[in-house]
């Protein structure tokens, strides 16, 4: 059994890693077809993974309701939202889920009038919390924190009409910060992250890094 539980996954990972890494350097139609096929397979497997997420969320909220955890009543709304959306999605305007998705159905209505406004509102609430957190924590005590504060203020003011009214140079300064020091730092971080990702990928392919297998045998 350890062969099936540990060796086979390591072999699959090794073969897939080597083949896809070398595919990049083979300029042939077969190589491109192989990559296309593997990407499609990956999409299919990721599609199944969505159901694990759905199961996990349903299980969590079902447990909350079953054991009457504090605030369990709110979990019912998770089921209501999910069941109604799934129902309309599968109903597909009366044609069923075995045909292509129809446009302008109640499923789209839910997306337009429930999901989009709720999502946008939740993220817009963050504007208040960020402003509040910034007010409480931004103190120009050191050169570093002063730089952070000044850069943030210039970028914020430079992106709105009032910035240009205060000084015509503010939008230019904001663009310069985004295009020069910000770009340099982001590029440095990106280079470091990329080298780390490549090193980790090599370790995964050769079975040195096995965290993705989880614990146990």
């Amino acid at each position: 059994m350890p062969f099936l539980r540990r060796t086979v996954p390591l072999a699959i990972c090794f073969v897939m890693g080597i083949m896809t890494a070398f595919q990049y350097f083979v300029p042939h139609q077969l190589s491109r077809d192989f990559l296309e096929l593997m990407t499609r397979w990956d999409k299919i497997i990721a599609g199944f993974a969505v159901f694990i997420g759905a199961y996990s969320l349903f299980h969590l909220h079902y447990s909350r309701i079953r054991f009457k955890v504090a605030g369990w009543g709110y979990s019912i709304f998770v089921f209501i939202g999910a069941i109604v959306t799934l129902g309309f999605g599968l109903y597909n305007g009366g044609d069923g889920f075995w045909v292509d998705k129809n446009e302008g159905t109640m499923f789209d209505w839910i997306y337009i009038y429930v999901q989009v406004p709720a999502g946008a509102t939740i993220f817009s609430i963050l504007a208040f919390f960020m402003a509040s957190a910034a007010y409480r924590t931004f103190r120009a005590r050191t050169v570093e924190s002063a730089l952070l504060l000044v850069a943030a203020i210039i970028v914020m003011l430079g992106r709105v009409p009032i910035g240009a009214l205060i000084s015509e140079h503010l939008p230019t300064a904001a663009d310069w910060i985004m295009g020069v020091p910000n770009l340099a730092a982001k590029r440095g971080i990106l280079l470091g992250v990329s080298l780390g990702a490549i090193a980790t990928s090599i370790k995964i392919i050769f079975g040195i890094e096995r965290q993705y297998l989880g614990g146990g045998d």
Binding site: G47, V50, I110
Partner: peptide
């Protein structure tokens, strides 16, 4: 908030069906 979570889940599952699995 909970309604949004449920709708987002249902939406993801349906879109996965129509865009990937089907």
């Amino acid at each position: 908030e909970n309604l949004y979570v449920g709708v987002a889940l249902g939406y993801t599952v349906i879109i996965t069906w129509y865009n990937a699995l089907k």
